[in-house]
Every structure is written in C-alpha cells, then in structure tokens.
C-alpha cells in the first residue's frame, strides 16, 4: 500500500518534469526572440549578440534546459513583456482568484453530478425531462450559457451581479484569496457578497462536468444495483436508502472519481472563457490579455500553472481511487 502511494507520487514528479521539458521546447521553437523583445526594434546585431551570450542563449540546448530548470527552482519565469513585472509575481496575483473560482466550480459540479446520478436511478415522470435539459446545457458553449445567465439573472431579474469578484470597489482590483480571507475573518456580509459573485461563473463552469459526472455515476449505479452484492444487502434487511448509499454509491465511487478527474482538467481549460465573460480577475483574463500582446513568458507561465494543477489533481484522484477500492491496493 505505502509503496503504491509512493510510486504514484514519484510518477507525478516525473510527469511534472516532462511538463517543464515541453514548455522549454515550446519556448525554443516559438518565433519570438526574447532578446530582441528586450531591446526593441533598434538594437544593433552586436548588442543582441552580447546579450544573447550573457543570457546563455548560445549554449547547447541541454545546457539551456538545465539553466531553465535552475531559474524555475528560483521561481524565475522571466519578465512579462506587457506588465514589465516578473511573471511569477503576476501569477501569484492572479492564481488565487482562479483557484477560488475553480474550487467553487468543482464543489458545484460534484453536488449537481451526484444529484443527477441519483435521479437517473429512479424511473418515473420528469427524469427524462431532467436528462434532456442537462444534455442541452452541457452541450451549449460555455460563453453562450454565461451570456444567457448574465442577461437573465442580472439584466432581467437582478438577482446576481454580472461579473467581478466583489461589490466593494476598494477591493475590486485586490488579489489573493478574497472569499477564503473573508471566511477566515468571519465577515459574513462579505462572504455572502463573494458567494453571490462566485455563483454564476462557477455554475456555468460546472454545468458540463456535472452532467458527465452524473452520467457516469448513473451508469455504474445501474449496473451495481443489479449485482449480487446488492441483493445480499437487501436480504440483510437494509433499507433502500442504506443499500443505495452504503453499497451502491460506495461502489460507484471509483468510475465516478476518474470521470471527475478528467472533467476537472477540462474545467481548468474552461476557466479562461468564463473569466473573460464574467470579468473575473484571474489567470484566464491574464492569459487573454497576454495573448493579445504575444506576451510569451506570461503565456508559458499560465500554461505551466494550469498544466501542473492538472497533473496534481489527477494524482490526487488516483490516490482517492486507491482509498475507494481496496482491490486496487493489493495489486503489485
């Protein structure tokens, strides 16, 4: 058991190394020349050459990669061309907002997914309609659902704000963990404000994943509820609820978790569109603006953070699956 956990974690580091290699290679094939970008158009060839030597760009690729790893270890991802600040500083500012949005989204996707999955095990009026609506909303493009949501819930009904993280204009440009910060400080009104701002973007982001999770859960629950083990549980005289929760859901957890892991990866991609639609000051918006300016160091920085999150999340899912299914633990 311990060996399996250690292997999984080591292999996660292996994948992360591959990620750095990929990013390094992308950096190298990109047409953008960081030295030229540094000097602007009017640099002389001698100046360029001197700077190139100074930054080590004349060394062979493997050596450059080692240098790159060294800088990475010191959290040096270069300087953003647009903001003229170190990319790591920018990432530090924008990541918490995205993290809060993604976190809220994962929670919503999980709750909605389990609800949809449980609903699917019942027969009767309404379940077909629910399935139809859920397929519709999950197949509509995220930006479209987002805009519809703003039109309906903000313009028409005025229930939710159209975007941003907070109504407090002083904090409007603030960075860091706004929701969690307020929660820690027990500012209840502030927490409620943050929740109102989170609700729409997080839900829009969660719709697709929730349907996928729900379908997987429904499928495996249906199979499991036909199994002998469930018949055994019924023979013990357990109530239907106990049969469903203790035996049904418990056994459906494995496949549902792996689907959830995949979906969280997609969700990280969807974050970019949703942040633009809802003017959420996170990595997505930062990336959007960086793409406009061909700000390659910034773009690669965001790719690095999102890629690493994806790898880490899927490792966590793997470990959760070990916890969910004892049979996986005893294999070599």
């Amino acid at each position: 058991m311990r060996r399996i956990v250690i292997t999984r974690i080591l292999s996660m580091f292996g994948v992360l190394m591959l990620l750095t290699l990929a990013i390094f290679l992308i950096q190298n094939v990109l047409p953008a020349d960081p030295v030229r970008a540094y000097f602007g158009r009017n640099a002389t060839p001698e100046q360029l050459e001197a700077k190139r030597q100074e930054l080590g760009y004349d060394k062979p690729l493997p050596v450059q990669y080692v240098d790159f790893l060294g800088r990475l270890a010191q959290l040096d991802l270069g300087t953003s061309l647009r903001t003229r600040r170190p990319v790591t500083t920018d990432l530090g500012d924008f990541t918490p907002a995205t993290f809060e949005l993604a976190f809220a989204s994962v929670v919503i996707a999980g709750v909605l997914g389990v609800m949809l999955g449980l609903l699917g095990t019942r027969r009767g009026a309404g379940t077909g309609a629910v399935r139809l609506v859920s397929v519709m909303w999950s197949s509509a493009p995220t930006f479209f659902v987002g805009l519809l949501g703003i039109l309906l819930l903000y313009r028409r009904l005025g229930w939710l704000p159209p975007g941003g993280r907070t109504s407090n204009t002083l904090e409007a440009t603030s960075t860091g963990f706004l929701f969690f910060g307020r929660l820690m400080r027990f500012e209840l009104a502030g927490v409620w404000d943050a929740v109102r701002h989170l609700l729409m973007p997080a839900t829009v982001l969660a719709l697709g994943p929730s349907v996928a999770i729900g379908r997987t859960l429904r499928g495996s629950l249906r199979d499991i509820l036909r199994d002998d083990q469930v018949r055994t549980a019924r023979v013990k005289g357990l109530t239907e609820r106990a049969v469903l929760v203790r035996h049904g859901l418990r056994n459906a957890l494995g496949p549902t978790l792996s689907m959830a892991g995949l979906q969280i990866g997609l969700l990280l991609a969807g974050v970019i569109v949703v942040e633009v639609v809802f003017s959420w000051p996170g990595l997505g918006q930062y990336l959007d603006q960086s793409i406009d300016r061909a700000d390659f160091p910034a773009i690669l920085g965001v790719v690095m953070v999102l890629g690493a999150s994806y790898v880490v999340i899927n490792t966590i899912v793997d470990l959760l699956q070990l916890a969910a299914d004892p049979r996986l633990r005893s294999q070599r």
């Binding site: 018949r231 055994t232 023979v235 005289g237 239907e240 035996h247």
Partner: peptide, 27 residues
C-alpha cells in the same frame, strides 16, 4: 416494505451462486 425488511433481517438468510460477486468488495 418495512415488514418485509424485518422478515428478511430477522428470519431469512440467503446464499447465492457466485461467491465472488455476492459480497461488497469495498467493505
């Protein structure tokens, strides 16, 4: 339903054909 459950819990036992699938693998 509750009477039938009670009968099952208190008075009945069952053994099925395939011992590999009759027990919950996660418990």
């Amino acid at each position: 339903a509750s009477q039938r459950r009670t009968v099952r819990r208190r008075l009945l036992g069952a053994v099925f054909q395939d011992p590999l699938t009759s027990l919950d693998p996660t418990m």
